[in-house]
């Protein structure tokens, strides 16, 4: 009798978690996103410091996109798309392993709520670039990404909130130290992702 009742309580907890949280998050998604971001940052750095770098910042002011800036945007877009594709792939593998679908109602709720700060940050970054305020892009992307992670933590593993807060803190620091945007960006999107992904992998084995 006693064991039965214990099972009942466990069953209740499992059903509550399963119906409200997206638990197919894979540590590999974080690790790979971090690696892509680091590689992207390496090429961006090369581009900025090796070529006629100043152009990247000043061409835009008279309304023309410089080649260098377009390269930078292409790198950023590439890192973003690769990260998303990898996350989709690794998370669907995790979901399959535990016999669940990837897009559960909880997963959709998470994505929908994350999208609000995420898209706001993205659009704001584009506006800033078009206005020639490149220096604000690193802090803005870090801060808004961090905020979307804090929101996501309500719909998936709670500990992702820590990652979100660290990203926001890095973003604020990046705003204080103008000119070190790429450095903070690499820390936030590269190093932190790899660290969090590894911890996540070790903890949940997924």
């Amino acid at each position: 009798m006693k064991r039965n009742l214990q099972e009942e309580l466990t069953h209740i907890r499992i059903m509550m978690e399963r119906s409200t949280r997206f638990l197919s998050l894979s540590g590999w998604a974080g690790i790979m996103a971090g690696i892509y971001a680091s590689i992207g940052a390496y090429y961006a750095r090369k581009l900025i410091y090796n070529s006629a770098s100043i152009e990247i910042y000043f061409d835009i002011k008279d309304g023309s996109m410089s080649k260098g800036l377009l390269y930078l945007l292409a790198i950023a877009t590439g890192v973003f798309l690769l990260s998303m594709a990898t996350a989709l792939y690794t998370c669907s593998r995790t979901a399959k392993k535990s016999g669940e679908k990837l897009f559960t109602p909880a997963a959709l709720k998470m994505l929908y709520n994350m999208a609000i700060p995420f898209i706001t940050g993205g659009v704001l970054s584009i506006i800033l670039i078009l206005k020639g305020l490149m220096g604000l892009v690193a802090p803005i992307t870090l801060i808004f990404y961090g905020l979307s992670l804090v929101i996501a933590s309500h719909y998936t593993y709670r500990n992702i909130k820590v990652l979100g807060i660290l990203e926001v803190a890095l973003g604020l620091l990046a705003a204080c130290y103008q000119g070190y945007g790429l450095f903070f960006w690499t820390l936030g999107f590269g190093v932190l992702h790899i660290l969090y992904g590894t911890l996540m992998y070790l903890k949940y084995k997924q």
Partner: peptide, 23 residues
């Protein structure tokens, strides 16, 4: 018990959602 657990933490759920969670 499972149905009720789900409804305690979700404002409302659909038939298909319940079906999926409880297989």
């Amino acid at each position: 018990l499972g149905i009720m657990s789900v409804l305690m933490v979700n404002e409302y759920v659909s038939f298909n959602e319940l079906k999926q969670w409880m297989s």
